[in-house]
Design a protein around this nucleic acid. Sequence first.
DNA 1: GCGTAAACTTACTGGCAAGTAGATTCTGCC
DNA 2: GGCAGAATCTACTTGCCAGTAAGTTTACGC
Lengths: 217, 217
Amino acid sequence: MSRSTQQPRARRLPRDVRERQILDAAVQVFSQHGFHAASMDEVADVAGVSKPMVYTYLGSKEDLFSECIRREAKRLIDAVTEGVSTDDELAPDMLLWLGLRSFFRYVGGNRDSWTVLHRQALSVGGTFADEISEMRTRSIDLVASVVVSTGTKQGIGEQAEKSGAGLAAALVGAAESLADWWIDHPDVEEGTLASWLMNLVWLGFGDLVQGAVWRPR
Amino acid sequence: MSRSTQQPRARRLPRDVRERQILDAAVQVFSQHGFHAASMDEVADVAGVSKPMVYTYLGSKEDLFSECIRREAKRLIDAVTEGVSTDDELAPDMLLWLGLRSFFRYVGGNRDSWTVLHRQALSVGGTFADEISEMRTRSIDLVASVVVSTGTKQGIGEQAEKSGAGLAAALVGAAESLADWWIDHPDVEEGTLASWLMNLVWLGFGDLVQGAVWRPR
DNA sequence: GCGTAAACTTACTGGCAAGTAGATTCTGCC
DNA sequence: GGCAGAATCTACTTGCCAGTAAGTTTACGC
């Protein structure tokens, strides 16, 4: 681990290529050390570029982090969106299944990205928290609409609608935490994670939309 | 918010009292800014004490953070343990219900504590991650034992045992994330959160231990 | 070939925050 | 009342790191 420069230091590349390299490096460094512990020197180093380039192209440290969040959030959302888009209309459970698989597949293939989005962005707060929160809200709304639509189709949506948002938040949270857990236990397949959640959650949803409720005795 | 010193600056207190004050201040400051962005000056300031006291009593910044984690983790675990301990034997779902309520009650009454334990400790990594991870593992094992025992009692534990740990991880994760979500949406009652999770999860567990499985079609 | 703009660098400044040296002020006890 | 030691402070040093000034090299159009 004595090597510090990672990229082969290609010379005179056009701006957009360098910008991408720098962002890639930044995601990696931020995911390893977190926002505050990460140094711009290391980002520049990993990108194979000198520090003023980073500032010239991407602005301040906050700007850089913000841009990382934005780019990675978009990639994640695009991946999931693409994963659930098909020609035919899908049953809600299959929709959820596809969404979960896409999500875990993305996290598995882009662990740095997920770490930055979830673990790091949460702990910085401020402006970033808003962007993360927005992404999360979008996910929750999407899931909630699946839950509620399931209930509505069966004509018993009242119960589902009442707790729909909360259940969706819990589900999204479960998925997020399972993804975190996966970062530390990578020896599980992505489909397994998705099916754990489906089994935990779908059977629960199924009962719920049919009016079953658990109550303390 | 122009005041910086918070404690009334009582003089000549015995060491253990000061230590507690400093730890309280540290939890608050770390939860607000995170490990790296927090300054020892602010901790000292909030504790109503000068900086060398902090170093004399609690050691380096890492030592201080570590001690915060240890103390708060113990408080949380004690709270939940006490919440589920009764004289009579409880049904597994009631056990889970009581555990969830205790957990959310603690988080509700000690938001700084939870923030430090979950959001901040996760993002620092290293030694702290291990302590957190251990706390988490204990929780998961506890939950898993409830799930598996439910299945075993009904003589159909195979399915539950196979995915028990995964389901438990997902449930613990869901609870953690719901707690995080609650930090940003405090206008929900603690019992409501717990019942969302019970409804989401227990009905699912119930089906599972009776052999129902969701499969993609 | 040559000039100009874009790509890129070295080498600095300034400030903040971790950690400490050493002096000082109380308090309880003989 | 005076002294031992615990409690506490002021005022530093030190090192790191965000951000920048000012210069140097190369590609490419004409």
